[in-house]
Write a protein that binds this DNA or RNA. Structure first.
Length: 105
DNA sequence: CGAATGACAATCT
DNA sequence: TAGATTGCCATTC
């Protein structure tokens, strides 16, 4: 099944170290799907947060997370990332240049 | 089986 | 450079 894609996404997201954030395109590219950023997001739509899946560390290319209502409240992701050590811009966006996850490390 | 949706990205104007 | 549009992949109806 293509669910393997889902599994891969979960595994990869789980591998994101604290203090770092990854974009959907970045994850998709790691999985070998340079154009499946949407699929990655969809995978998260059903991502069991109870699994410990740091979906709040997954952002879009804009440096902003998906609709806050997904996390259960607005401003929650900002607090979570902030607790991880993520720097937020005045725009309410994360500094990707500073926290974009680097698999090289 | 076919069409529509979705937490995006890239490209074109 | 900014804004708008199309395309892609996988899932669900």
């Amino acid at each position: 099944m293509r669910e393997r894609f889902f599994q891969n996404v979960y595994e990869l997201v789980e591998k994101i170290p604290p203090g770092s954030v990854a974009t959907y395109g970045q994850i998709a590219l790691m999985l070998g799907h340079p154009r499946s950023a949407r699929a990655v997001g969809f995978a998260m739509s059903g991502a069991p947060k109870e699994r410990g899946l740091p979906c709040h560390r997954v952002l879009n290319q804009r440096g902003e997370l998906s609709p806050e209502h997904v996390f259960g409240g607005r401003g929650v992701q900002r607090m979570l990332l902030e607790a991880e050590g993520i720097s937020f811009l005045r725009d309410g966006r994360v500094d990707l240049r500073r926290h974009l996850w680097k698999p090289c490390v």
